[in-house]
Simulated assay, not measured.
Amino acid sequence: MDFIERWFGVSPDGGDGSTELLYIVVIAAVLALIVFRRSIAKRLRKPPS
């Protein structure tokens, strides 16, 4: 997990890969929100029982 270092030539996390992992997790979360937005909105509108 060192694509930032290879692509841009900088190492923002000291080479341990944590920044790249964070980017991947954030992108996956955003994609999940986009895919499931209708079901999430439906659950938020549903009154508590």
Rank of each mutant, 00 (worst) to 15 (best):
M1Y: 15
D2G: 12
D2P: 00
F3W: 15
F3R: 13
F3N: 06
I4C: 00
E5D: 12
E5I: 12
E5S: 07
R6V: 05
W7I: 11
W7P: 04
W7R: 12
F8N: 01
F8A: 07
F8M: 01
F8G: 02
F8P: 09
F8V: 02
G9R: 04
G9M: 06
G9K: 04
G9N: 02
V10S: 05
V10F: 11
P12Q: 12
P12S: 05
P12F: 07
P12M: 06
D13H: 05
D13Y: 05
D13K: 00
D13T: 01
G15C: 07
G15E: 05
G15M: 09
G15A: 01
G15W: 10
D16H: 05
D16T: 05
G17W: 00
S18V: 12
S18F: 09
S18H: 10
T19A: 12
T19P: 06
T19H: 02
E20N: 07
L21H: 07
L21N: 09
L21E: 05
L21K: 13
L21Y: 06
L22D: 08
L22R: 13
Y23A: 13
Y23N: 09
Y23H: 08
I24Y: 14
I24V: 12
V25P: 04
V25M: 13
V26Y: 14
I27Y: 12
I27M: 14
A28G: 05
A28T: 11
A28R: 07
A28Y: 04
A28M: 06
A28S: 12
A29E: 04
A29K: 08
A29C: 09
A29W: 11
A29I: 13
V30D: 05
V30K: 03
V30T: 11
V30F: 08
L31A: 10
L31C: 10
A32E: 02
A32L: 08
A32S: 11
A32Y: 00
L33E: 13
L33K: 03
L33P: 08
I34N: 03
I34C: 04
I34K: 00
I34P: 00
V35K: 07
V35C: 00
V35T: 01
V35F: 07
F36D: 04
F36N: 10
F36L: 08
F36E: 01
R37V: 09
R37N: 10
R38Y: 08
R38L: 03
R38Q: 02
R38V: 02
R38A: 02
R38W: 04
R38H: 14
S39M: 14
S39I: 14
S39Q: 14
I40R: 01
I40A: 03
I40H: 06
A41N: 05
A41T: 11
A41P: 10
K42E: 12
K42D: 07
R43I: 05
R43A: 06
R43V: 03
R43L: 14
L44H: 00
R45E: 06
R45L: 04
K46G: 08
K46A: 09
P47W: 09
P47A: 06
P47K: 04
P47F: 06
P48A: 15
P48D: 15
P48K: 13
P48F: 14
S49E: 04
S49C: 10
S49D: 13
S49A: 13
S49H: 15
